[in-house]
Design a binder for these strands. Sequence first.
RNA 1: GCCGCUUUAGCUCAGCUGGUAGAGCAACCGCUUCGUAAGCGGUAGGUCGUCUGUUCGAAUCAGACAAGCGGCACCA
Length: 642
Amino acid sequence: MPVITLPDGSKRTFDHSVTVHEVASSIGAGLARAALAGRVNGKVVDTSSVIDGDAELAIITDKDPDGLDVIRHSTAHLLAQAVKQLYPEAQVTIGPVIEDGFYYDFSYSRPFTPEDLAQIEQRMAEISKADLPVKRRELPRDEAVQHFLGMGEKYKAEIIASIPAGEPIGLYGQGDFEDLCRGPHVPSTGKLKAFKLMKVAGAYWRGDHRNEMLQRIYGTAWANDKELKEYLHRLEEAEKRDHRKIGRELDLFHMQEEAPGAVFWHPKGWSVFQRLISYMREVQAKAGFEEVNAPEIMDVSLWQQSGHLEKFGENMFLTRTPDERLYAIKPMNCPGHVQIFKQGIRSYRDLPLRFAEFGKVHRYEPSGALHGLMRVRAFTQDDAHLFITPDQITEESVKVTQLILDIYRDFGFDDVRIKFSDRPPQRVGADAVWDQAEAALKAAAVAAGIEFTLNKGEGAFYGPKLEFVLRDAIGRDWQCGTLQVDLNMPGRLGAHYIDEAGQKQTPVMLHRAIFGSLERFFAILLEHHAGRLPAWLAPVQAVVMGITDRQSAYVESVAEGLKNQGFRVTSDLRNEKVGFKIREHTLQRVPYLLVAGDKEVAANLVSVRTRNGKDLGTMQLATFVERLRIELDSRGRAVGED
RNA sequence: GCCGCUUUAGCUCAGCUGGUAGAGCAACCGCUUCGUAAGCGGUAGGUCGUCUGUUCGAAUCAGACAAGCGGCACCA
């Protein structure tokens, strides 16, 4: 006699076991048709699933986020079915749901082509149209292994064989296709209507680069065509923000074949880059950091001692000089900072010592990893190392965390999360010190008062770490800052201080970076703002232009006046229509466009327009200056351009 | 590094099955003096990523290499 409680609290009593579908039908035919799955006592199940006791039940439709997952998962099966029909020798492996869609990995003698994809998609549409019922059955594990081996599906058999023996194996069938699956799935293929295959790619079997490479097909699937279209539109919008495109359009930087993974900064890009540095200099100096600078090329012996050569050697650039000495180009700044720490005898009274460096490092990243400014081989870190006593870990960690969050806010990133990684199985250092270090970082994360997640066992071998992830304007997450406790390197490189009792002690070292890589942070800023860098960072803050050349002298004097007050301003005296100039400088993302015609000249005014197309009207130059100054001083928080 | 794709003018791209290249925008030169996202006309610009091969002949076909793009792996 199951009593079914629905989400609105209402109860329905049945005198026999019922399926989710039957309950939905008893509520209404429309709901029964829309039902994709059910949530029984919090667990998502098929609509065919039988309920034989009292239960809470929600009918899942495509309005429900779980419903979308079911659709995506089922579309992955649809893809596999289409592929098996068109390419019977292809072997199926796995097909999980991912953000915005799904993928399915196949083992096949050749890669799929875009033409194949079109054909597969066509076949998927046909199978969907046929509205094949999706049916679940179970087999004992060993039988399931034999079943798939018999079909020649060795990957499936391998997956099933790795499932514990006692568990029954769920199989989902639709028409001529059957796949191992935990489920749940939509009741029939006709529910899958809005999908698109996106791309093909290689992927290693079980994610291990030593294994065979499979053919992965990515797809996206949505509740309806409208959502699918919106998604495709979002992708296009994201493409427009691509920092590589913006970098070229705004003449900020370029890269070329002879220097893979390294940046040629153009004047405008470098101006922004320098501004990031001077900003950071200012705020970190206030926070007690002292800037240092260490050599970029040092003898390999130092890197042997630090352990980098052994652990990181494959990623290091080496250089042999005519005198046959082998040097390494620094991939990290820490050993250099330890050398500075080691000069002279340090007292506990000197601590904490906070050394910061805008250190240019070189890392030989795998060729396939390079990506615009996001992943390069030569980049600048806003790196710092704090040499402290174990007692100071908590206080310093809290301070660094606050500093990081304050800085992100200045750049318009308010949505920040923290990832906390604690001790890995393989590590150095005594457990008592790990306890202390982990507690300190946790305290810092808690004090920050923002969401943090624990990555169990993901810490570095030398210490636990916090990683700061910021979310950009279109919802993408970027890991930038990091705060790591290092219980290894100071000792390894022979750093000491003398404690209150006159005893030699090894300091604890904190590594911290806020931008992380300036190149990467620059790219994130460009994408976050879609190229419209806040005025305090913009390479050009305003362009002054006339309508005809009668105003040229006035335009020049306005531009000069602004420049003399420290603003970054240019004038545009070209013989072009004002509409043309407006368009061009708007595309160049110049925050303010000042126009002067005969009327403005006569009244000693400027007409101000923003790059967002807003007309701020005509005003005295001093009024504009005041407004801009407030905007720059507040980094855009007190006054915005629109 | 692995799989696939791509590489033609500053940019975006066209160039069918081999007969030594074309457009739009940008640039340059004129004309136009015009009120808030493209005024008109003209000129110039490329050893088709590099190397090797096939061929009477290669941007086009083949191979190697390089870089880039999308994934995978990597990100100490």
